[in-house]
Structures are given as structure tokens and as C-alpha cells.
Design a binder for these strands. Structure first.
Lengths: 244, 244
DNA sequence: TATGTTGCTATGTTTGTACATATAAACCAG
DNA sequence: CTGGTTTATATGTACAAACATAGCAACATA
């Protein structure tokens, strides 16, 4: 991505500015709290008007990627994933949007017989093996989440897929399966031996546990996913407005 | 709510316009698909500039309450409730909906100085005491959640209220404060001494921790609530549909 | 010392203006 | 009647210019 604005391009300036900001704030300096240049200067640097620049900034503020404070300035709003885009971005994408690169610590594919619960969810017989994907993921420093996914056989996965790409992107592009609806259950749990080992914490210490039931466009079940997040490493946010 | 714009009010015109639009589009005519007046006319009617009006409309478009189409116009984006509208039940109501009667094990009102975080959220000075409400609640067998709530002084609570009624009902009926927007953060935590004591679990064992920021109709902060749920006793469910 | 006061600087709000673009509908030529 | 062209109308993009407001800091006063 080019880090400058092309006034002749067909793509609107405020979109260009937005993208450019998204790149810019990945800089560790900004990630660690440095203020962005003030609006007037930044507009001058980019050679666009303050209004246009603000359009771009506003979008990111709305996404809670940036925080503005009068007289203080604008900086990246660190942690805390927002439910706005979340839910419908994969883990990788969400982290990337924040400039946090994701590392796969382990990635393991196996074929297993579904237990009753899973067979029931997928509405399949239990005598047919399905693909199980286990992933231990985190940032550069540490692994902080352990995922276990099961996929519906209908999708036709072979196990040779490129699981380094964002999962839903891969499924969409290579297997024409589009995730459309997700039902999630979030609770707290004590880590068992296995999870504790993976996340390098003591058995019995807390993890955030998320079950995710994912459906495709036809509302057919496509994935069953279990996520174990190291406590404090992951905050689930929900915003809801009364409708009555 | 008055359906006109007050240019002398302290509240920004685009906010007034936004609220006004929210009211306006409740009209069954608009709900059933009628186009809003075009921007130029509407701006003229409200006696604000088109740009300001657009600020308001943009917000609603971003919230997916309105849809715009070039040359066609702007109308309400009908149904499609995502997780936005869900989750709007109080704890008591939630439980009652499941047929679980709720018991208050402890109920304690006190007046405290807000810490920096709370003062900042409420946008008040830290030298004024605010009401703190602690409640230990559960079913007939055991207490499984410990709540701590702080209320904005604007509400004018005295401490003599009847906290046995559902909280939001009491606030609405007796204090004319209507909860309208809630932002929640859910994570897993290890119970400290205090929480462990209340919930009768071992210190260090997992609890589901929920922060809740509640806003009234004017999007003004009204309550800050911390909830500690005994692990396994509470599962948070979220359903979200892709909108793109 | 404590307390105003004032000014600086950042974001926040608002207006006026202009041109671009998408598209439905009216129009016109073959 | 058919197919292209124009026009009217809506949103979309962009700029410039003010003034408002919040908060910090430096200075001045009691």
C-alpha cells in the first residue's frame, strides 16, 4: 500500500485517507500511545482539507480504533475488541485491523468421529469422520487463545487447505461457503490440564470460554468452534440499544 | 421530546437532529418504507445546513437504521436485528424469563467518592459522593452473582428506593430515567478474596466478569455496573448475522 | 502559598459553496 | 416501437472559513 494520497485517483480522498491511517497506526510508536499529528498539520501533510481528514478519522473513531480528546489529541484506542465489526470478522482480521500480527503457535488437523452433540448439531451420522482443526494462537510474545473447530462434511475440506489465511476468507474463496450467522455462548471456566498446558497457565486458573455455532447463507450449520482465551487477554464487548 | 431544533440549546445541532430523526422514523409511514424528505428540503425544514443534517443521517446510516441510495433517497433500513437489539433484559427479567426466581442475599447501599475511572465516565468531579449499590443475588439454593453499581448523581437517588423491584423499572417509574444504551465488556477473571467470599468459592477460581456501561435516552451515562458471575452459572449468548 | 486569570492549542461544531456521480424518467431520432 | 441521449433529482465528495469549548500552563494577584 502506498502511503500517500492520489488526488487523481477515482477512489475518494476520505477513503484513501482512512486506509492510510489504518496503515499508519500500525506503527509501534502509535500503538504504544503516541499522539497522531494534530488535524490541521496532518491535513496539510496529506494535502487534503481538514474536513476530509476528519471524515476518515471519524470512521476509525467510530470503529473504536482511535480515541480523541479535546486539547490532548488523537491516539490509538488500544485494547478492547468492539462488537461492531467483531462477530463478523475473523480473529485474524480483527487483530490485523489493530495492527497486531497473529502468530500460529500450533496448527493441527485431524479426522475424528463426531460426538453425539456435534453429530446432532451438524445433523449427520456419527459413523463418518469429520475434520477437526486445532490452533494455538497469539501475538509475538505469547499464545493466548486455543481454538478447536469442527467442520461440516458438506464443505468438502481435505485437510490440505492453507490455514494460514483467515479462515472464513479461505472457506469463501476456495470452497464457496459463506458464513452468515453465528450464535455464541460465552462463559468463564477453569482451565483443565490440556488447556493450561497450551496456554502456559496453572490448571484451574480462569479462561474465557466461547462456543461458536456458525451457519452458512442457507442457515445450514457449517462450523462448531470452541475458543479458550487466557483470562484478561480477551474482552468481549457487546453494544445494545433498546428498540421498544 | 420536542420535534424541532433549538439553535440556542447547548446540545449540538447534529445531535438534536439525530435524536429528532430517531423519533421521526418511528412513524409507521417511514417504518413501512416511505422515503424521508430529501436532504436539501429536510435541511431547510429543520433550518440547519445540509452538512449538519448529513452528520446526523450518517450516524444512523452507520447504525444501520437508515439506508441511502443515490437518486432514490433515504429510508429506514428495515428489520434485521443483529445483536444490537438483543440483550436488553435486566438480570431479574432474564432469569424470570427462564422461570428462575431471584433472591437477594445481600443488598447494601453506600455513598462513596468516585475513583478516577468512574468520575471520568460520568464526567463529574471526584469530590462529590455518589451512590454505590452492592447486591449479592442468586436462586433459592445459592448466590451466584455479585453486582456493584454506581449511579450518576443527576438521577437523584436517595438510597431509600425499593431495590427489590427490577432496577430499571424502578428508575423509570420513580426517577424518569430510561436506560437506552448499554455497552458491555465480558471477560474471565480470577476471584479475589472479596468476591470469593461472597460467592463461596475459592480465591483464584474463575468468575465471569461483566462491566456494563448504561446510558439514558440522551446517551448520557447513568450507571456503571460490575457483575461477577460464578463460573458455569451464567452463559452469555450472542447471535449475530452478517449484514454486508 | 493559594487562587484566579488569561492565553494557547487541540478538538468540536456549523455554515456555505461547489462540483461529481448514479439513475430513473422523459425525450427524441431512426 | 426501439434504442440511445438528455435532463432532473437524489446522494456523494470536497474545500474553506469561522467560531465554540475544553484543558493545560504560565502568569498575576490576593
Amino acid at each position: 500500500m502506498k502511503l500517500s494520497i492520489d488526488h487523481k485517483s477515482a477512489v475518494p480522498l476520505h477513503i484513501q485517507a482512512e486506509n492510510l491511517l489504518r496503515e499508519l497506526i500500525k506503527d509501534p510508536e502509535y500503538q504504544s500511545g503516541k499522539l497522531l499529528p494534530n488535524e490541521v498539520d496532518l491535513a496539510k501533510i496529506l494535502a487534503i482539507s481538514r474536513t476530509t481528514l476528519r471524515q476518515a478519522i471519524n470512521k476509525l473513531v467510530y470503529e473504536e480504533l482511535l480515541i480523541r480528546k479535546k486539547r490532548l489529541g488523537t491516539k490509538v484506542a488500544h485494547p478492547k475488541m468492539s462488537s461492531k465489526s467483531m462477530n463478523w470478522l475473523s480473529f485474524t482480521q480483527e487483530m490485523q485491523a489493530r495492527g497486531i500480527p497473529i502468530k500460529n503457535y500450533e496448527l493441527h488437523v485431524s479426522w475424528v468421529y463426531p460426538d453425539e452433540f456435534i453429530a446432532n448439531f451438524f445433523d449427520i451420522k456419527a459413523d463418518k469422520k469429520i475434520m477437526k482443526l486445532e490452533r494455538l494462537r497469539g501475538n509475538a510474545e505469547e499464545a493466548f487463545v486455543y481454538f478447536v473447530s469442527y467442520f461440516h462434511p458438506r464443505i468438502g475440506l481435505t485437510g490440505d487447505e492453507d490455514f494460514k489465511k483467515p479462515l472464513y476468507e479461505m472457506l469463501e474463496v476456495d470452497h464457496s461457503v459463506v458464513a452468515n450467522l453465528s450464535k455464541e455462548e460465552i462463559s468463564a471456566k477453569a482451565a483443565d490440564k490440556l488447556i493450561a498446558g497450551k496456554l502456559e497457565i496453572d490448571p484451574g486458573s480462569p479462561v474465557l470460554f466461547r462456543k461458536r455455532f456458525v451457519f452458512d447463507q442457507g442457515d445450514r450449520p457449517m462450523e462448531y468452534n470452541l475458543g479458550y482465551y487466557k483470562a484478561e487477554s480477551f474482552i468481549y464487548t457487546v453494544e445494545s440499544r433498546r428498540t421498544s
